[in-house]
């Protein structure tokens, strides 16, 4: 394999991995604080894309306002899901909440099919041009199919750079909220001991609500960047990215934000390199992601950055 091609595979892998990372951060946050695997995360991701899509195409909002609608819409949706589906089960066994999460996921998928229809909608030309620009390094320009094309170059899509910057900013904002604000302190406290926290006069429900809002907003950010790269949306769009992000979060150590980012990037790279180095195995790329999960968990059960939990007998 030529070195340029290998570098291009790495860039493509990073590009995909950063998107997984962004979605995984929301996943891991909700888990870290509630110990609840929110399987509806992928569906909130999907809903936020639809919100953005209709805000821009149907209501004619400018793209940045459309994105804001998507993010705020997702946050509100996350909070309502928590109010309606998870809150009544706060003191129930954890498995009940997990099953409910799967139910919510299916419900949102079906709801989207009913409301938005099952036909994919195009996201092309919804966002401004700088989202879809491609920067090239090296190579030469040729004329083909009626346009100028740069060949043999290393290509960096602008969406990858945007995703990288957004992931970085998100990480910093999240760190600031969790470690430098009162609300963040409350969240961390809830993750340690809900009973003690409520005795201290902190509203547990409000804190959990906020966690959901924040996690869902992160799913929306990931969703918006996802359609910037893959310009179509349909009700099933959230299923696989959601599952992959879950894998990424577990690989990185579920509950750890930095771990989710590392896990996401790792997963993206492995997926692309699997296909790039073994093209005949491309049909099994998802299987490889899950094999990686199994192998890693058998050596390091708490993930790369996960805290070791002592189980007291």
């Amino acid at each position: 394999m030529k070195i340029e091609i290998f570098i291009q595979h790495l860039i493509n892998g990073l590009s995909l991995g950063l998107l997984y990372a962004l979605i995984a951060v929301g996943y891991t946050m909700v888990y870290g604080i509630l110990k609840l695997i929110n399987f509806a995360h992928g569906e909130i991701f999907m809903m936020s894309i639809f919100f953005t899509f209709y805000a821009i195409t149907l209501f004619g909002l400018p793209w940045w306002l459309g994105m804001a609608v998507g993010i705020v819409g997702a946050a509100l949706l996350g909070m309502s899901v928590d109010k309606i589906a998870y809150k009544p089960l706060r003191n129930a066994p954890r498995i009940s909440a997990l099953i409910t999460a799967i139910g919510v996921s299916m419900f949102l998928q079906s709801l989207a099919i009913v409301i938005f229809g099952g036909i994919p909608e195009s996201f092309r030309n919804v966002f401004p041009e700088f989202f879809t620009k491609i920067f090239t390094i090296g190579g030469e320009v040729i004329e083909a199919r009626g346009r100028e094309i740069v060949v043999n170059a290393i290509r960096i899509p602008s969406i990858t750079i945007i995703t990288f910057v957004v992931t970085l900013i998100t990480f910093l904002i999240l760190w600031f909220i969790l470690y430098r604000t009162k609300a963040g302190m409350a969240m961390r406290a809830v993750s340690m001991d809900t009973k003690a926290v409520s005795l201290m006069g902190i509203s547990v429900n409000k804190t959990i609500s906020m966690t959901f809002a924040l996690g869902s907003a992160l799913a929306a950010v990931g969703g918006i960047l996802w359609v910037g790269k893959y310009p179509q949306v349909w009700p099933m769009i959230g299923f696989m990215p959601g599952l992959k992000a879950f894998v990424a979060a577990v690989i990185g150590g579920i509950g750890s934000v930095a771990g989710a980012i590392i896990g996401g990037i790792l997963l993206g790279l492995i997926e692309i390199l699997t296909v790039g180095l073994m093209p005949q195995m491309a049909g099994y790329r998802d299987a490889f992601a899950f094999i990686l999960l199994i192998v890693l968990l058998s050596f390091k059960p708490s993930g790369i950055m996960g805290k070791k939990e002592l189980v007291k007998v």
Binding site: M1, Q8, H9, N12, I237, M240, G276, P279, M281, R285
Partner: peptide, 22 residues
């Protein structure tokens, strides 16, 4: 001919495209 494989529902094909181009 060369085969490049994928599955229904896949959204990223960059690796297959690049492999075919190589």
């Amino acid at each position: 001919i060369f085969y490049e494989y994928y599955k229904t529902g896949d959204q990223d094909f960059s690796a297959q495209v690049l492999d075919a181009m190589s």
